[in-house]
């Protein structure tokens, strides 16, 4: 088998992507928990830790560029490296969502707003679970998983709509809380967007395996937070 060194290096980058993925998963879960617990200490730590995620992403990007330049990959190898470049970017953006949630935790302070904690927590858990499985599917190039996961985005969207309704109703009932409540909107929005980006990872998985670029369902057109 030719190209063993090349394959070993690809494997290393795949491991790094899984590592970056688990960093993002942990950051997302922690951001939701600290939001629920109003744990400003943890929130501050999360904001600082986001730098690690950014650094890791640049390291991965660099490693991929070096492989592109030195190994001239083609066909499957080329698609894999290009996809990994995009996935590293997606993960970094997901890390930013976690950071955004932590920011809102700090800004919200100890406001006594009624908050749909249960649903938000559920959203977070669902999104992270999707992310985790989409990354395993990405690494193992499991097309059936990659095609199945995006359907779960509907559930996240439903939860988002439910939270949205609750929060907006709260605003209408008590206009004095609008400032604080809009921060809540950002939190649920970030979790919803994170799940959308999981769909992108699934699209890349299909691309690696089949070379087809297909758009999967996911509420892509919403504004980012």
């Amino acid at each position: 088998m030719a190209r063993e060194l090349f394959e070993r290096k690809i494997k290393q980058i795949q491991d790094e992507i899984l590592l970056l993925g688990s960093m993002v998963e942990q950051a997302t879960l922690d951001s939701v928990t600290s939001f629920k617990d109003r744990d400003i200490q943890t929130a501050k730590a999360l904001i600082e830790d986001d730098q690690n995620i950014n650094d890791k992403r640049f390291a991965i990007e660099n490693a991929i560029l070096i492989l592109l330049a030195t190994q001239q990959p083609l066909a499957h190898d080329l698609r894999l490296l290009a996809a990994m470049l995009l996935v590293a970017n997606e993960l970094e953006r997901m890390g930013d969502y976690a950071k955004g949630i932590a920011n809102n935790t700090i800004r919200l302070g100890i406001s006594d707003l009624p908050i749909p904690y249960r649903d938000i927590e559920k959203m977070g858990e669902l999104a992270v679970s999707m992310l985790h499985r989409s990354l395993s599917a990405f690494i193992s190039e499991d097309i059936s998983q990659a095609l199945a996961i995006p359907h779960e985005d509907d559930e996240v969207d439903a939860l988002f709509n439910k939270c949205y309704r609750t929060i907006v109703n709260g605003m209408i009932a008590n206009p004095a809380t609008i400032d604080d409540a809009s921060l809540l909107l950002w939190v649920v929005h970030n979790l919803e967007r994170l799940a959308d980006r999981v769909v992108n990872i699934c699209e890349r998985t299909v691309f690696i395996k089949s070379g087809e670029m297909m758009e999967m369902d996911g509420s892509e057109d919403e504004v980012e937070g």
Partner: peptide, 15 residues
């Protein structure tokens, strides 16, 4: 070069 249909082509062009 990005998406060959045949497995042999794939193996050949990816070295």
């Amino acid at each position: 070069f990005t998406n060959p249909k045949n497995e042999l082509t794939e193996q050949y062009i990816s070295g």
